[in-house]
Computed example of a mutant assay.
Amino acid sequence: MNDSAPHRTTPPGWPQGVPGPEAPGWQEAAVGWLLDQCPPDYRGYDAWRRHPLALAWIAARHVEGEVSVMREAYRHARVELGPHLPPEALPEILGVLEREGLRLRATARAAALVHAAFTGEHFVPRL
């Protein structure tokens, strides 16, 4: 093992499939991942590809908005949907909302990490 080789790590929560910010070409992979987190119409704006920091900024906000919507939906589902669904449906719907909320929280963390990397922040592993 060569101890002089650089040790590349990514912070916990870094998006899967995107090389770490020390890897060559990571920005292109990150742009693709960020666009996947945004509405499809965002791909039609060349400015997002030309300015990946701006894309990371808006993608992080977009995903945080989705987290907020999911929390709101979870809070109101029982009252607003409960009377209109069969009894077995509400727990199922609440479970889906909970799982989607967890997925979105992880995506929001990943988007924030990519944004931080585009601003030049460096991840320092902690013991």
Score class of each variant (00 low, 15 high):
Ser4Met: 12
His7Val: 09
Thr10Gln: 05
Pro12Asp: 15
Gly13Ser: 11
Gly20Lys: 00
Glu22Arg: 00
Glu28Ala: 13
Ala29Trp: 09
Val31Asp: 12
Leu34Trp: 08
Leu34Thr: 11
Leu35Ala: 05
Gln37Met: 11
Gln37Glu: 13
Cys38Ile: 03
Tyr45Asp: 14
Asp46Cys: 05
Ala47Thr: 09
Ala47Ile: 10
Ala47Tyr: 12
Trp48Arg: 06
Trp48Cys: 09
Arg50Trp: 07
Pro52Met: 09
Pro52Leu: 07
Leu53Lys: 02
Ala54Thr: 03
Leu55Trp: 14
Ala56Trp: 04
Ala56Arg: 03
Ala60Val: 08
Glu64Phe: 00
Val67Phe: 03
Val67Pro: 01
Ser68Asn: 09
Val69Asn: 05
Met70Val: 06
Glu72Val: 08
Glu72Gly: 02
Ala73Lys: 11
Ala73Gln: 12
Arg75Glu: 10
His76Asp: 15
His76Cys: 15
Ala77Asp: 10
Arg78Ser: 15
Gly82Met: 14
Leu85Val: 15
Leu90Gln: 02
Leu97Gly: 10
Leu97Asp: 07
Arg99Asp: 12
Arg99Asn: 10
Leu102Ala: 08
Ala106His: 06
Thr107Ser: 08
Arg109Val: 07
Arg109Gly: 04
Ala110Tyr: 09
Ala112Arg: 12
Val114Thr: 11
Ala116Gln: 12
Phe118Lys: 03
Phe118Asn: 02
Phe123Gln: 00
Phe123Thr: 00
